[in-house]
Design a protein around this nucleic acid. Structure first.
Lengths: 123, 123
DNA sequence: CGCTTTTTTCACGGATAGATCACGAGTTTG
DNA sequence: CAAACTCGTGATCTATCCGTGAAAAAAGCG
């Protein structure tokens, strides 16, 4: 199948929590199960995952995923972040990936949003 | 290994105790964990951290973060120092960063928790 | 101490920024 | 050709930010 040029590119695979992203393949696995993402959703996820742990501005994301400059008032990034969150949460309810930093941008990082702490009150 | 072109600035990173501040990115890490600060909070923290160990006046901080002159009776700096302290303490309860010097201003410096001040109260 | 000055914190309202929904046009698929 | 899907926009709703005024607390001082 895939034959890599002399520069010997290794297939890129990104990991984040129980997520596995294969940018070359267009595939995302959540705990081994494949997610169905649209092209935009996938590109956005890949772009964020490549910069895990850092804050990325909307302008930056738009340039990377859409190409060209983000026009003032364009909400595309926000909307696709929302769609992405929705699908990620459906797949992995107990984990948050995309964090908003108001005034700065978004940060992608798997975080145990609120791990069920064991209180003694349980029946 | 990132190599920066001549024209590019080396990313500024400030350290203070278990705090890591990345002014260019808008990111603050406390023991590796990201804090969520507002723009003002972040700018104020950066401004103080750049002058670690020195006393900085309110006028000075206002000029740097807000721009323009601090008007008589304006308590913005105090209020944002308070907000900042609150978030820092939530993240790092055992460490004090912002110290008040009444009549002079504020000093930013990480101080060990085992701050057993030697007063003469002993028997 | 008791009083004055300085600092800290809270609560509020207007402003800004972000999240989400619904829709229409365009595409893809079968 | 029809059904299903994608994409981006506009509109609405929600969350967060920011600076102010005032009360509470702390510090300074005689």
């Amino acid at each position: 199948m895939a034959v890599y040029p002399e520069s010997a590119e290794v297939p890129e695979i990104l990991y984040a929590g129980e997520l596995e992203i294969r940018p070359d393949e267009g595939l995302v696995l959540a705990t081994g199960q494949a997610l169905t993402l649209s092209v935009r959703e996938f590109e956005l996820l890949s772009a964020m995952a490549r910069r895990q742990g850092t804050i990325v501005t909307r302008e930056d994301l738009y340039r990377t995923v859409w190409g060209g400059e983000l026009r003032h008032g364009d909400r595309s990034v926000d909307v696709y972040v929302s769609k992405l969150r929705s699908k990620l949460e459906a797949a992995l309810p107990d984990r948050r990936f995309i964090h908003t930093h108001p005034g700065f941008g978004y940060r992608f990082q798997p975080q145990p949003s609120r791990n069920v702490h064991m209180d003694g009150s349980g029946a």
